[in-house]
Amino acid sequence: MSSGISYKSRGVGPALVFLHGVGGGAESWDAQLAFFGDRFRALAWDMPGYGGSAPAAPADFPQWAEALAAWLDEIDVERCVLVGHSIGGMIAQQFMTRHAHRVTRLVLSATSPAFGRLDGDFQRDFIRSRIGPLDDGKTMSDLAAQFIPGLVGADADPEGIRNAVSTMSRVAPQTYRDAMQALVRFDLRDWLASIGVPTLLVAGEHDKAAPAKVMERMAEKIPDARYACAAGAGHLANMERPEVFNAILAEFLEA
């Protein structure tokens, strides 16, 4: 039975699996597939509901984590280095709660172990700001043009920004709505101490969505973790500063 997941792949060798963010897709990792494809079997999925991947029901983190496991089974990946960005980092954490034996190393980029209570003021304001424009008739292209510039640091790579805007523009509105609703319910803070593999946390120096100080504190709660800051980057370090991000990841993989 097919997992229903579309993906991009480059190279052969140990599996290096990339999970994108809420406005992303497999294309978000093009710079990483090109860079690491000569040493790894570098793979980037379209999470359920994105790109050519079938939606998951329910659209929540446990279901997405199981979809990840099924996809890895389908493509014959028993164990991998798992790299998750933003909501992809949350899926990676959820995956670790049931499938930790399949992960040799873990990389969490621009993410968090929790978003907070669904009924909190911050969460309500966040949902309103991100989904409200769709309710007002805006398109995903409109949202991409509105939000991407505020997610990146100064002097971001122009090609990376074009990629980010183009990819977010193609996200289905319902998929985006579902992901945002799931995001504010996520909370695995109590699981951080249970992560038992070498872990790298990467923060963008100017990231306002997943601030560097928050990620540094997150690293302190994971037993075998190290923290790195991507100089000059905002929330999309892998696209806006790919050379910086790739160098940080390569150093971790070679340690």
Rank of each mutant, 00 (worst) to 15 (best):
S2R: 14
S3A: 15
S9G: 11
G11Q: 09
A15G: 12
H20M: 06
G23M: 11
D38F: 00
R41C: 10
D46E: 05
Y50V: 02
Y50K: 04
Q63F: 00
A65W: 03
A67L: 06
W71G: 11
L72K: 05
L72I: 06
E74C: 11
V77A: 12
V77S: 12
E78G: 14
V83R: 06
G84H: 10
H85G: 07
M90S: 03
Q93M: 15
H99F: 15
A100Q: 15
V103G: 08
V103K: 01
D121C: 01
F122P: 00
I127G: 02
I127R: 08
P133A: 13
L134P: 14
D142I: 01
L143Q: 05
G153F: 03
P158W: 10
E159V: 08
G160C: 07
T175A: 04
T175Y: 02
Y176A: 08
D178A: 08
F186Q: 10
L188R: 13
D190Q: 13
D190E: 15
L192C: 02
L192F: 06
H206D: 11
M215Y: 10
A219V: 13
Y227L: 06
A233E: 01
N238V: 02
V244T: 15
F245M: 09
I248P: 09
A250V: 09
E251V: 04
